[in-house]
Write a protein that binds this DNA or RNA. Structure first.
Length: 553
RNA sequence: GGGCGGGUGCCAGAGUGGACAAAUGGAGCGGAUUGCAAAUCCGCUGCGCAAGCUUCGUGGGUUCGAAUCCCACCCCGCCCUCCA
């Protein structure tokens, strides 16, 4: 059964039909870097990651342009941008009178520096927005790698897969210029300090993605527009492409004045530059190189090949206005037939994560970042599983209990894989499981059902073979859980310390004391010691070989 | 006011016309194993001894038959243009 996905654009579950099934192009709207990304953002990025892994899987079938089934494996070029441009904090005032978020981050960093809470070896100048952005970007990439976000791993060798907005401003100017030439955009204001707007009525399909029509959108309902800006526009729905503002924290020169680019244009440029190919070119197979800035020139001139990428993803808050605007400006700049009305074949939008049934927010105290959880000894594999195990199109609920469940599942799977690796060599494999797994994944990425199939298979396979190990690895290549490995464990003569715990002399002393008590069959005392350890925050467990496994309680 | 996605058992979470009293995992109960734990394995966990009866946000409807389709309503989440 070929892969079917819910397409935000059509509001239907439909066959995924990439232009070239051998090489799928995938763009994800990445994070802003004023602060550490929280688990909600990671849930969204991980859903995209699971999708790209599934498309790559040998088990995945898609419908080719010919209508035939195309069997995996296949390659995916996945690009995730990093938005490192500063923006304003004050939403209510239309985003232009508040404080720049990068400045806020700078203040926070300066305080951290003063109080000595910055990690050792980090040097960052809190007054330099580029350094602040780089500081948080590096932390994001680090978290992303620990959670197995493939694009972040690949970007090590090919940084073009995670482009930075600040480095693509020239391309943005190029595209804006083209939009003006084509009559889709206009500049207002005095020469040298102009503002450029995209003219929404020039793109008829505007509104298709979000389900809105221009006149249904209640102007100002979101409380984020300013009347001064609205007065300048030809149409209330017109959106910003370039703002001249020499006082902005990050600014660039442009034909319209020194300032900064609009909020949607960066994704158009970064997606196009890395994922589209000029009409004449068929060599996108050279994926590592990408097509680069030169491509933009080719794209902004008429092409015969539709400038459309295969999948575009982002959090549900991106649907409107961000992706709606991105479609409008991309199609208009690259000459995509407006009747297609899209820049990507498939629009994929995971829903927000709730924590304990409520919205996550700093004021509620239910705000988590991966690194906070890792510090508590939560292992990345468990967090990853917890964040991917619910269907991407419903609001998952993150709880401590769920995290524990996931941890246990990870351990059970690990045990299975270990037994399988040590199992018989030439056993046949279960004929059903990969079919069911594939059916679940292809059914709008039903990860929960796929996980259930894996669990059932494990239960009915008490003596797994090497072939089962291969099968498990094929599943895990998609889920990306076991490949993250176990938390470091330290061994001593008597103890195995899990969860990244270091052998503590006080704990070791108790373990020896308990071993002696047990040898003397003084079980009262041995139980007492276990209780003491529990009070100290350690859970222990006797394992084979007379050793004791120590975990965080 | 409008657009979009959800609402399933103690919890998490699949199921989208019959094979559903409802997958899978957790939690609980009973048993095997263990000095005891932990882990693992087996059984049970809506009501009823049973035939059977009542469940899938609420209320109607369609159908021989609905968690699944239609209508209305309620609740949660995201968005309504410069939030990155």
């Amino acid at each position: 059964m070929p892969l079917r996905l819910y397409n935000t654009l059509t509001k239907e579950i439909e066959d995924f039909r990439p232009a070239d099934p051998d090489l799928v192009t995938f763009y994800t709207c990445g994070p802003t870097v004023y602060d550490d990304a929280h688990i909600g953002k990671f849930r969204s990025f991980l859903a995209a990651d699971v999708l790209r892994r599934w498309i790559e899987s040998p088990l995945c079938e898609v419908v080719a342009p010919t209508g035939d089934r195309h069997r995996g494996p296949r390659r995916v070029v996945h690009v995730m941008n990093i938005t490192d441009v500063g923006h304003m904090t004050d939403d209510a005032e239309g985003g232009e009178s508040g404080e720049d978020r990068m400045s806020v981050a700078g203040r926070r960093l300066a305080e951290a520096k003063k109080s000595g809470s910055l990690p050792a070896g980090v040097s960052v100048d809190p007054t330099n927005p580029y350094q602040i952005a780089e500081f948080y970007a590096a932390r994001f990439v680090d978290d992303a790698r620990r959670l197995g976000l493939k694009v972040a791993v690949e970007a090590k060798a090919d940084p073009t897969l995670m482009p930075r907005a600040t480095q693509k401003v020239a391309g943005m100017i190029q595209v804006i210029r083209r939009l003006i030439e084509r009559g889709h955009a206009y500049a207002v204001g005095d020469p040298g300090q102009q503002t450029v707007y995209f003219h929404v009525p020039s793109f008829a399909p505007y509104g298709r993605l979000s389900g809105n029509t221009v006149d249904q959108l209640a102007e100002g309902r979101g409380g984020r527009i300013s009347s001064a800006n609205q007065a300048q526009k030809k149409h209330p729905a017109d959106f910003l492409l370039w703002k001249s503002d020499a006082s902005h924290v990050m600014k660039w020169d442009s034909p319209w004045g020194t300032g900064y680019p609009g909020w949607h244009i960066e994704c158009t440029v970064m997606a196009a530059e890395r994922l589209l190919r000029p009409a004449a070119s068929t060599d996108l197979k050279q994926a590592a190189g990408g097509v680069g800035p030169a491509l933009l020139d080719a794209l902004v001139h008429p092409t015969t090949r539709p400038a459309i990428i295969d999948v575009h993803s982002g959090g549900e808050d991106n649907i409107f206005p961000h992706h709606e605007c991105e479609i409008a400006q991309s199609c208009s700049a690259f000459g995509v037939d407006p009747s297609r009305g899209t820049f990507a074949r498939m629009w994929f939008h995971p829903r927000f994560l709730l924590v304990d049934g409520e919205k996550m927010s700093k004021s509620k105290g239910n705000f988590h970042t991966p690194r906070q959880l890792f510090e508590r000894g939560i292992e990345p594999a468990a967090l990853r599983l917890e964040l991917i195990k619910t269907h991407y199109r419903s609001n998952a609920n993150f709880t401590e209990q769920g995290l524990k469940d996931s941890q246990r599942t990870v351990e059970r799977w690990r045990g299975f894989l270990e037994r399988a690796d040590a199992g018989a060599r030439d056993s046949s494999i279960d004929p059903e499981v990969s079919r069911w797994f594939a059916a679940a994944m292809s059914n709008d990425l039903n990860v929960a059902e796929a996980i259930a199939e894996v669990n059932k298979w494990i239960s009915r396979t008490p003596e797994p073979s090497r072939n089962d190990a291969m099968m498990m690895r094929a599943f895990d290549a998609v889920l990306g859980v076991l490949e993250l490995g176990a938390a470091a464990s330290a061994q001593t003569e008597i103890g195995i310390f899990r969860d990244g715990l270091a052998p503590d002399p006080a704990v070791l002393a108790k373990l020896y004391e308990r071993a002696a008590a047990r040898a003397a069959k003084d079980f009262r005392k041995s139980d007492q010691i276990r209780d003491e350890l529990a009070r100290m925050g350690y859970a222990i467990k006797d394992v084979a070989g007379g050793k004791v496994e120590v975990r965080r309680a």
